[in-house]
């Protein structure tokens, strides 16, 4: 497979977006065929909306959905600040979202992504 684009969205950028903006950003990227890495994961409500919106975008012989993988972030145990802000563990996770037909690619790159995550 050649020419796959991977875009990283920093937690700073994510924090500045509303839930709907985040979901549109994800789907816009993934529909174009790129893989998107969110430095901070989505809240359960955002995940729920993402599934719903993904379904509404599916077309025959076109976009056929997404694949998601999450990776534990560096500071996995919730720290004082995280607890204070009431963020669940899942939100602190690094999340990789790609087009469904590139599942194999995400799986294959899993080690590379994990390695990349662990060196950050």
């Amino acid at each position: 497979m050649q020419g796959i684009q991977i875009d990283l969205i920093s937690s700073e950028k994510l924090a500045a977006l509303t839930s709907m903006e985040k979901i549109h950003l994800i789907l816009d990227h993934v529909r174009k065929g790129s893989i998107i890495i969110l430095e901070k994961g989505l809240s359960p409500d955002e995940q729920s909306t993402l599934i719903e919106m993904t379904m509404r975008e599916i077309l025959p012989d076109g976009f056929n959905g997404i694949e998601i993988e999450t990776y534990p972030s560096r500071d996995q145990s919730p720290g004082f600040l995280q607890k204070l802000l009431g963020r669940s563990a899942i939100e602190s996770r690094l999340t990789v979202i790609g087009p469904a037909n590139q599942l194999r690619m995400i799986k294959k790159e899993k080690d590379i992504i994990s390695a990349w995550v662990s060196t950050r």
């Binding site: 599934i51 993904t54 599916i58 025959p60 056929n64 959905g65 694949e67 469904a100």
Partner: peptide
């Protein structure tokens, strides 16, 4: 059943024609 992806082509394996699968 909840999933994040659906491809009509997966239904063709069950002997459906394209229109039914779509």
């Amino acid at each position: 059943g909840v999933t994040t992806k659906i491809d009509y082509k997966d239904f063709l394996e069950y002997g459906m024609d394209k229109e039914t699968a779509v």
